[in-house]
């Protein structure tokens, strides 16, 4: 068991409490004496709480011998982690942009940023060419060839 497991288990426990709070607020209607909309969620909350408790116990039991290795959490260094978070952020921005200015306008600049800043593509020509090529290519295949609607943007 990894050292991080005990923290994950604690978080999951807290989450099941929070989720349980919302479950308690669900409407409790029933039909023909059968369980209502709250029943199944309660079973799940119970199961999650039980399982995360088990995880906590096992990680406490077996965790001692491995607890001296701080790099155990997936082998990802701090530097890399920062980069991952940044990429998540860029992807999120991309999605927000597509929703608002549309697929064609949003995709090109974001891809260029990803290629140059994230993936470290050095050449401008290749960067611009690839970003434009992917944008146009997907537009062509989806919109023109297959007729699948693409997100068009809220603003215009």
């Amino acid at each position: 068991m990894k050292r991080s497991d005990r923290w994950v288990a604690v978080l999951l426990l807290a989450f099941s409490v929070w989720w349980g709070y919302h479950t308690a607020n669900l409407p409790s209607a029933t039909m023909a004496n059968a369980p209502g909309p709250r029943f199944f969620p309660w079973v799940l909350v119970g199961a999650l709480a039980l399982l995360s408790l088990l995880l906590l116990i096992t990680s406490l039991k077996t965790g001692a011998d491995e607890s001296r290795r701080p790099e155990a959490n997936g082998g990802i260094g701090r530097q890399k982690l920062k980069k991952h978070v940044a990429v998540f952020f860029i992807i999120f921005i991309y999605i927000v942009l597509v929703e608002n200015i549309g697929f064609r306008l949003a995709t090109f600049p974001i891809l260029l940023i990803i290629l140059r800043l994230v993936m470290g593509q050095k050449s401008w020509v290749v960067g611009i060419g690839t970003a434009a090529g992917i944008t146009m290519g997907i537009y062509l295949v989806f919109r023109v060839l297959l007729g699948v609607p693409l997100p068009s943007g809220n603003l215009w």
Binding site: G129, A132, M136, G137, L140
Partner: peptide, 8 residues
Amino acid sequence: IISLLVPA
């Protein structure tokens, strides 16, 4: 890319 770009 070029072949995709032109028709696009």
